[in-house]
Amino acid sequence: MLGVTGQKRGRFLLYRDEKREPLMVIRDLKKYYPVRGSTIGKKKPIIHAVDGVDFEIYEGETLGIVGESGCGKSTIGRQIVALEKPTSGHVLYQGESLSDMSAGRLRKIRTHLQMVFQDSTSSLNPRKQIYDILAAPILYHKIVERDMLDEEINRLLDLVGLPKSMKYRYPHEFSGGQRQRIGIAKALSLRPRLVVCDEPVSALDVSVQAQILNLLKQLQDELKVTYVFIAHGLGAVRYVSNRIAIMYLGRIVEIADTQELFDDPVHPYTQALFDASPLPAPKLRGRQRIILKGEIPSSINPPKGCRFHTRCPYAIESCRVDDPKLIPVKPGSSHLAACPVVLAQRKN
């Protein structure tokens, strides 16, 4: 679909040749936030939440986005569902830029792009019954006729494994896991093609986490919906994702198929991330572990050159100057990493 939507889109043509059609293309996305507060006369400091990110989301896949808090992963999620406008760059849905759409067109497209929030308590209006919470968007977008509404809501509750007798209850009468199920039902009620799950299980008990993850997987099989799964824990992401992008300070440092990434992490940050979590990764056991020292630098003044060089054990002089690009690990590979040093070492 990309490239056929007019010559204006031509400059967004994929530079990577993939056999599949991307559902969404993110190109050089940047999102800066001014720091709140009054600094009279001085220029306001700016947080570089997302600072130049490129990737694709393919139909039917689950793309995991992993990184520390503040690395910009949730910001990307908000751009994908058009909750915020990017500072620069584009989020292209089926070749169309979300920020260039007319209000009417965007309103229609919004039903395709839904979101499941982390905090299930604040994602449901405390003063409304579940029935009303689910019904309003369905009726507004005329997903079903009014006389089919009851049936549709029963179907949705059934889909997420809640008894339909619960529909007249208020959010505070549910447990965290149940509320997250309702959040999923709400996101799916508009029959979306892409759902951004912004840390959907981080606030839940471990036993409930597994249930919700399994529910998400099962729904994907049934409904062929695409997920962007944002998390800071590797376990959950590894379990649900086909591909994973690792973020550090507003940049993607490595992106690869899940198996490939865990078998052969290239970027030093990815390696450090894996070393820091107690995952069974036999291939890594013989290798020296990378233990990160120091704090993550401020995103107000991100380091020049490679953003990771201040904490990187392999950093060389050029890392302080040259801003590394994402490049294929092997020619033609879909495994991309932004570390020329490690890649050069591997060649030798």
Partner: peptide, 17 residues
């Protein structure tokens, strides 16, 4: 700033609603 208001923006609900 609450998620339920953001959720309604994402759901494309009109401002008056």
């Amino acid at each position: 700033e609450t998620n339920f208001v953001k959720g309604n923006v994402v759901a494309g609900m009109p401002n008056r609603y």
